[in-house]
Computed example of a mutant assay.
Amino acid sequence: MDLFIHQKKFRKFFEALESYKKCFSRFLKGYPTPKKAETNLQHALSGVLAALTDSELMTALEEAREQSPDTLSEEFLHSILQDFRDGTKVSKLELSLSNNFGFSKNAAMRIITELTVLEASHVSFEELPSRLEALHATMVKEVKVARELPRREKKKRKRDISRATWSGLLGVGTGVANAMAPPAFLFSFGFMAIGINQAGRDIIGEPSD
Results as ranks from 00 to 15, higher is better:
110 R>H: 09
96 S>N: 14
9 K>I: 10
15 E>R: 03
44 A>G: 10
106 N>F: 05
70 D>F: 03
103 F>Y: 10
87 G>K: 07
81 L>W: 05
42 Q>Y: 02
94 E>P: 02
90 V>F: 00
45 L>V: 11
117 V>Q: 03
54 D>E: 12
17 L>C: 09
71 T>Y: 07
47 G>M: 05
110 R>E: 15
36 K>D: 15
15 E>N: 08
101 F>P: 01
13 F>M: 14
74 E>K: 12
28 L>G: 04
41 L>S: 12
25 S>W: 00
53 T>N: 08
121 S>T: 13
118 L>S: 11
86 D>E: 15
45 L>D: 02
22 K>A: 14
89 K>Y: 02
77 L>P: 04
98 S>K: 10
71 T>C: 02
82 Q>T: 15
112 I>C: 04
46 S>V: 07
105 K>D: 05
110 R>V: 00
22 K>P: 06
73 S>W: 03
62 E>T: 13
9 K>Q: 15
40 N>I: 09
26 R>M: 08
89 K>M: 04
22 K>N: 11
76 F>Y: 15
42 Q>A: 11
75 E>L: 14
52 L>M: 10
93 L>Q: 14
51 A>R: 05
108 A>Q: 02
23 C>R: 14
118 L>E: 12
11 R>W: 05
51 A>L: 05
29 K>M: 13
17 L>G: 01
106 N>Y: 02
81 L>Y: 01
112 I>E: 05
37 A>K: 07
27 F>P: 01
32 P>M: 10
117 V>M: 10
118 L>I: 07
57 L>M: 11
121 S>D: 04
45 L>E: 15
12 K>M: 09
23 C>E: 15
105 K>Q: 14
43 H>C: 00
33 T>C: 12
113 T>K: 12
113 T>I: 08
108 A>C: 09
58 M>Y: 00
30 G>T: 08
47 G>T: 01
41 L>A: 09
62 E>Q: 12
35 K>C: 00
59 T>N: 13
94 E>Q: 06
52 L>R: 03
97 L>H: 06
10 F>N: 13
97 L>C: 06
36 K>W: 08
92 K>V: 00
82 Q>I: 08
66 E>F: 06
49 L>V: 14
88 T>S: 15
29 K>Q: 14
35 K>R: 10
59 T>L: 14
117 V>S: 09
59 T>P: 01
25 S>H: 02
68 S>Y: 02
59 T>W: 04
118 L>W: 02
16 A>F: 02
13 F>L: 15
15 E>A: 08
97 L>V: 06
107 A>L: 09
60 A>T: 13
41 L>H: 08
94 E>K: 00
27 F>G: 06
46 S>H: 07
70 D>W: 06
42 Q>T: 13
91 S>G: 09
76 F>N: 07
46 S>C: 03
15 E>I: 10
40 N>V: 10
28 L>Q: 15
46 S>K: 13
71 T>W: 05
56 E>N: 12
81 L>K: 08
